[in-house]
Design a protein around this nucleic acid. Structure first.
Length: 778
DNA sequence: CCTAGTGCACCA
DNA sequence: GGTGCACTAGGT
């Protein structure tokens, strides 16, 4: 008899282990690790989905095991490599194994559970389709025994199928007599004869099903179901292109990578140095060897500009995975990869789990981006997964950036990674942009405007020359807070310790943390004064200001609020690319990966946002962002100009952006990290503790800190507990502990003990999150 | 002594 | 998460 070890889809600590199930005779031949199954679980024997991680042959009859109810897959949906990855992940990602496994599957394969409510009269309804009131009524009826419950654990898998018509025997069709008055039948006959055996999609035919049926019944045509890719049309529209000539530096990088295919490389290249061309050619090299490739791009820059380059070069060998796709589209791409049809995967963070076989190279572009770390459970870093996968396959790993993260650069300096430098712009004619820093303290004390004279002048100049401008303002909404001039009262979110942001389009005050929305008060809630004023500028306000100062300028605004709908992102960029607007105004999402040759001016309205955040990476982030946005200026033959407005003109992140000196920044920042024992000199783990009651959080946070101190060596530095910078959100108080360490054998063990603590009943409402190498402290 | 309500351990 | 079960308080 066979026994299957299964991880059940019940994400809880007590069920976070493999359960043994008997395999019935009917599945015995088929079952394999990596398949999804349905099984009876718990006292009610409700059907639960699970993933088989191991199949054992058991000669003697084991004690009464339950039996697997259903096999959901004809073949494994997870590879042995992915099962191994889930094991490895758990050493650093403090999450349930089932969560790790599910992170590797497209959503469609992660089944949703629904309850089918059966009334005594035989009628039934689905729980998920009921209104809140109906749910309550049904729940009562269930208790009264009037309604019984059935659990549905149904897979949502749906392949998009298209029906195709084909003619198996042309002669037979030609000789087949059709009566003259059957005009439509005759029409179809001659149409098919003209097609000459070519397949045709049923939906493109303008014949009724009756007519088609007649032909099928007489064996004249065959109908085939073909699984189609939802993204096919998009691919067909893109023109293919050829490899470009590499310059000396690019060639050197390329050669090094292909001759050391088991190494990790850090490709450091200034904007416009042609990193993408190196990526394309190295991928091509591995494809020619019969291998596959994964290319990661930050979600935000996963624009058509980037993806089209890959499609143009590799055609239908490419699978694209990003969050803009529907579940169905994601599933299609996943199938393409799984079946081996696609050998190049281009995608955001989660694409690192793509089920490719025989991996030759993994590329992570803009490797410094913090979005490569997932900020919800399982909190994995794509770079860490990439290292594991590269190890498994003996594949090359290429990290690319103009401003590498200090962690990666430090590793390259120690020889852990090989450093490859691109110091010249690929297009020789293109010169680096000129960067000017405007000290906003020196500007006329008129606080009502966001534009310095210098910036305004330049904008006008560029518009006259019919060139385009990108303006970045890292704050969305209209005003960042609303304050009473009379008593200083600021309108705060009732659930969070943060002021509400004014949104003019909807005329509401919004909380950017919990989503709370309320109206704008006419009088001060505190002193009833009418002197309510708006302070701080967001993209909406700056847009309005631009309309006032430069009514002739056409402005496009791009931020979370204008890109919420599907493809909105794409449409805005497309419009700007066609020069249907002069100014693209946006939050940091406009800084990444855009390439508009006609943009000759980049303006940073306020470089200070983020600079003074209580986060040791604040300077690094600011520097990266400014360097990146500066790189948007003058990418073709026109010289670019960058104007940075700031109240901190002497801050080193701003000074070194002006000098465009990564090297100097690296040195300076490393010295600071060394002095304060931060990464890359130390590793970090953050423990976040939340509860509705502030006293309880504080008390528990101290208990946890104590537990950590007891288990770790004195070399580990434990900071805190301290209140988070925004101490309360969603009506919960948040405290944090930061552990800085180098070598701590007992760390994993200690952190697991912390998690076990939360299982105790007295800590029921306590929320404890463990984040290894946290990226955001605010 | 019965019963509705709540807390709790366990799930193969 | 969901379930049966033990325990408890309050009613008859």
């Amino acid at each position: 008899m066979k026994i299957a070890k299964v991880i059940v889809d019940v994400p809880l600590m007590q069920t976070d282990k493999a359960f043994s199930y008997a395999v019935g005779q009917e599945f015995s031949e088929l079952i394999e690790p990596g398949m999804r199954v349905h099984l009876p679980f718990g006292t009610g024997n409700r059907l639960v989905q699970g993933i088989v991680v191991e199949v054992l042959e058991q000669s003697e009859q084991l004690e009464n095991l339950k039996t697997i109810a259903e096999l959901l897959d004809p073949e494994p949906v997870l590879t042995p490599e992915q099962l191994w990855l889930a094991d490895e992940m758990r050493h650093s990602v403090f999450s349930y194994k089932i969560s790790c496994l599910k992170a590797m599957l497209p959503n469609l394969l992660n089944s949703n559970y629904d309850k089918l409510l059966r009334a005594s009269d035989g009628s039934s309804s689905k729980w998920s389709e009921l209104t809140e009131a109906q749910k309550i009524a049904s729940a009562k009826a269930v208790r009264a025994g009037e309604i019984s419950i059935e659990y549905l654990a149904k897979s949502k898998e749906n392949r998009k199928i298209e029906k195709y018509l084909s003619v198996p025997d042309l002669d037979k069709l030609a000789q087949f007599e059709i009566e003259k008055r059957a005009k439509k039948r005759l029409e179809l006959k001659y149409f098919l004869l003209r097609l000459n055996q070519e397949k045709i999609a049923l939906k493109t035919l303008d014949f009724s099903t009756q007519i088609i049926k007649f032909f099928v019944e007489h064996d004249l045509v065959k109908i085939e179901e073909v699984e189609i890719s939802r993204t096919k049309e998009k691919f067909a529209a893109i023109q293919s292109d050829q490899a470009k000539q590499l310059n000396a530096e690019q060639t050197q990088a390329f050669e090094k990578i292909i001759h050391n295919p088991e190494r990790t490389f850090l490709l450091e290249g200034i904007t416009g140095s042609g990193k993408t061309e190196v990526y394309l050619q190295t991928i091509d090299h591995f494809l020619k060897k019969g291998q596959t490739a994964i290319m990661l791009v930050p979600e935000i820059s996963l624009t058509p500009q980037i993806t089209n380059r890959f499609i143009a070069r590799f055609g239908d060998k490419v699978a694209i995975m990003h969050s803009g796709l529907s579940d169905g589209e994601k599933y299609d791409e996943w199938r393409k990869i799984k079946s081996g049809q696609a050998q190049v995967v281009v995608g955001a963070r989660s694409a690192i789990f793509a089920p490719v076989e025989n991996l030759g190279i993994i590329i992570i572009d803009e490797e410094h981006e913090s979005s490569y770390k997932q900020d919800s459970s399982p909190r994995y870093h794509a770079r860490d997964i990439a290292l594991l996968r590269a190890k498994w396959h003996g594949a090359a790993l290429l990290l690319g950036s103009a401003t590498p993260s200090l962690e990666s650069r430090a590793r390259a300096m120690r020889g852990v990674y090989d450093l490859l430098l691109l110091t010249k712009r690929a297009n020789e004619a293109a010169i680096l942009p000129e960067i000017q820093v405007v000290d906003m303290r020196q500007e006329i004390s008129d606080q009502s405007t966001n534009f310095s004279q210098t910036l305004l002048q330049k904008i006008k100049e560029k518009i006259e020359k019919n060139e385009q401008i990108i303006l970045m303002l890292n704050r969305r909404g209209y005003s960042s807070f609303v304050m009473c001039r009379e008593c200083g009262f600021v309108v705060d979110c009732p659930n969070c310790d943060i002021s509400l942001t004014l949104h003019m389009d909807t005329r509401t005050l919004n909380c950017h943390y919990c989503g709370h929305v309320q109206g704008i008060p006419q009088t001060c809630p505190n002193c009833q004064s009418r002197k309510i004023r708006y302070y701080g500028s967001g993209t909406q306000k700056v847009e309005e200001e631009l309309h006032k100062i430069l009514p002739e300028a056409r402005v496009l605004r791009m931020d979370v609020d204008t890109t919420r709908t599907k493809n909105a992102h794409e449409k805005i960029l497309d419009k700007f690319g066609k020069h249907e607007a002069d100014i693209l105004l946006g939050t940091q999402m406009i800084a990444k990966g855009l390439d508009f040759p006609n943009v000759t001016l980049v303006g940073v309205i306020n470089a200070d946002t983020g600079l003074n955040l209580p986060d040791f990476r604040a300077s690094e982030r600011a520097f990266e962002l400014l360097m990146q946005v500066a790189g948007r200026a003058g990418r073709a033959d026109k010289k670019g100009e960058v104007i940075i407005q700031t109240f901190n003109p002497n801050h080193y992140a701003i000074q070194l952006t002006k000098a465009q000196d990564y090297e100097k920044f690296y040195e300076k920042e490393m010295a600071f990290r060394k002095e304060l024992s931060y990464p890359p000199y130390y590793f970090t783990v953050q423990v976040l503790i939340s509860h509705q009651n502030e006293e309880i959080v504080i008390q528990k946070a101290y208990e946890i800190a104590q537990l950590l101190r007891q288990n770790l060596t004195t070399k580990a530095k434990i900071l805190g507990p301290t209140a988070r910078p925004i101490a309360r959100t969603h009506n919960l108080f948040h405290y944090q502990i930061l552990v800085k360490y180098r070598f701590e054998e007992q760390l994993e063990n200690a952190l697991n003990q912390v998690l076990e603590l939360t299982q105790q009943r007295e800590n029921k409402n306590l929320r404890v999150l463990i984040d290894s190498e946290p990226q955001n402290f605010v």
